[in-house]
Amino acid sequence: MLKLIAKRMGLMVVMLLGLAVITFTIANVAPGDPARLAAGPDANQAMVEQIRVERGFDRPLPVRFVLYVDQLLHGDFGSSVYTGRPVARDIAQFLPATVELVLFSISIAIVLGVPLGVIAAVRQNKPIDHAIRLLSVSGVALPMFWLGLMLQWYLALDLGLFPLGGRLGIFTDVPEPITGMISIDALLRGQFAVAGEALWHMVLPATALSFPALAAIIRVNRAEMLEVLGRDYVTNARAQGIGPWRIIAVYSLKNAILPTLAMIGLRFGWMLGGTVLVEGVFDFPGLGLYAAKAAVSSDFEPIMAVTLTLGAAFMLINLVIDLLYAVLDPRVRNQI
């Protein structure tokens, strides 16, 4: 187990390096002159050229990449050309909000998706199966940002059931940070009303963000359950007189959940990407919103840092999922 973790961590470094190469290249071949951007709109050509040399923008791309990686290895993410703030501090500020939102969303998707998939399989082709299919098909068909806008429009603006956006009401004090995730910090500090308010603020963005994942989990879990319920070991369990509840919820689900788990790992990546849209719609101050702003203004170092952070998060999640896989499936466990 430890060996697997060490191996995967090593692999992660290599993959992050690859990711850095790709992002670095794309960011630098994209139109826009970083020196001019950094110099600001009022600068004259001489000032721009001076900045170009100062910041090393005039050197060849590979050299700049090596310098950039060297900088990263010293724990320095650079700073935003616009605000001048250190990128590391920005990420520390915005990442927890996004992690909180994504964890909340994936929890919704799993907690609803797995049982719905099971129910749909057990009641195959019954009305409830069709109803659930309607839900899972619309999850595939509806674009995330559009769903977010509609939820915001009807449930927040028209009906006033939910806040329009943000992480907390403007009159509420943010609890003293521990993890930076407001709901968890508030819980840890015993401020239950604040925790509730933070969750309440996340309901609409998390609904939009989790909907496609929910749909995918339902579909995969239904198909897997159907397959597992037809397997010989289920017949044998039934022949032993084991009750349907135990056969479905324990004997079958533990087998069916394995492919679902793999899919959840992939969906995590989608969700991390989706935060760019959803955080924008709900003005949720997370990494997605930060990345969107940086991308629009071609702010190079924040873009690089966000990409690498999200990439690392995605890889970590998938490592966790692989470990879970090994916990659940003894055949996998023996191979590692």
Binding site: N236, K254, L258
Partner: peptide
């Protein structure tokens, strides 16, 4: 009681 043809597939692999 019943026993079946293929003992490979009649036991649940994850328990």
């Amino acid at each position: 009681a019943m026993i079946f043809q293929d003992p490979m597939t009649y036991l649940n692999p994850v328990f």
